Computed example of a mutant assay.
Amino acid sequence: MSTPVVFIHGLWLHASSWQPWVELFQEAGYVPVAPGWPGEPGTVAEAREHPEAVADHGIDDVVAHYAKVIAGLPAKPILIGHSFGGMIAQKLLGQDLAAAAVAIDAAQIKGVLPLPLSALRATLPVFKNPANKHRAVSLTAEQFRFAFGNAVTEQESQELFDRWAVPAPGKPLFEAAAANFDPHSPAKVDTANELRGPLLLVTGGRDHTVPESVTRATLKQYRHSHAVTDIHDFPDRAHSLTIDSGWRAIADDSLAWLRQHGL
């Protein structure tokens, strides 16, 4: 039986941005799906028109949503998540709901302490107004360029923005920001789980939104588990690494790692 793969996107990108990955993994013999977040409309245009559809959804809502998707699959899937999707993938893996996970430039989990200035600047459009916790927030093309497209040309960043950028709920960012002060934070991941499947953390060295120091601090959170936890560095890549013209290098690397672990 072919292994299911569930792609989980992060903030400000639509689920359809995974389409090239879906096609590649299909060709490689997997059965991939890329469901949107709770309430997410089916197209980029609809998502832009109805930001309220995703507003006020927090981390727990998203985890429960994808757990329901997983429950409908014939076997434990491989999870591939980007940004907040990478955090969601780690939570689901820690709950033994997946065979393995690839977390690409994953949002910080509870216990991760570094808070680089570039990450604060990238998320400022949300944090500048406390009311954004219950709203969906859009990025401007200039904000997208800093947060996602700083390692590609200005033209490519604009093209990616025009094609994939959508409003995102502010709530997950507020929850992640408060994680280390909240004993019951939804950003907590079971990093000590010895029985979980393999985990690959992927980091882009030029990422402003989730800098390499955050991913390395995430890796340290897994030091008490003997389950496989690997890290792959792409020094010249930024937060757009799953959608820009170099996406294939990340996808091929993920496929090679999965095969290496018999997945």
Rank of each mutant, 00 (worst) to 15 (best):
I59A: 10
I59F: 10
I59V: 13
D60P: 05
V62N: 09
V62F: 15
V62H: 12
V62A: 13
V63Y: 07
V63L: 11
H65K: 08
Y66C: 04
Y66K: 04
K68A: 14
K68Y: 15
A71L: 09
A71C: 05
G72K: 00
P74S: 06
P74L: 06
A75V: 02
K76T: 07
I80W: 08
G81M: 13
S83E: 07
G86S: 04
M87F: 15
I88Y: 12
A89L: 11
A89V: 13
L92G: 05
L93D: 06
G94Q: 00
Q95T: 09
Q95G: 14
D96M: 13
D96T: 11
L97D: 08
L97W: 11
L97Q: 15
A100M: 10
A100W: 10
A101L: 10
A101S: 08
V102W: 14
A103S: 06
K110T: 14
K110R: 11
G111I: 15
G111P: 15
V112R: 07
V112F: 15
L113E: 13
L113I: 14
L115C: 12
L115N: 15
P116C: 04
P116T: 08
S118T: 12
S118V: 00
A119M: 10
L120A: 07
R121V: 14
L124S: 13
P125T: 09
V126A: 04
F127K: 05
N129D: 15
P130R: 13
P130L: 10
P130I: 12
K133Q: 13
K133I: 07
R135L: 12
A136L: 07
L139H: 01
A141Q: 01
A141R: 00
A141H: 05
E142F: 03
E142R: 10
Q143S: 08
Q143L: 07
F144V: 00
F144N: 01
R145A: 08
R145V: 03
F146P: 02
F148I: 06
A151Y: 08
V152Y: 02
E154Q: 03
E154K: 00
E154D: 08
Q155T: 13
Q158H: 02
E159S: 04
L160P: 00
F161Y: 03
A165V: 03
V166I: 09
V166W: 03
V166M: 02
P167W: 04
P169L: 00
P169A: 06
G170F: 06
P172T: 11
F174M: 04
E175H: 06
A176N: 05
A177E: 10
A178I: 12
A178R: 11
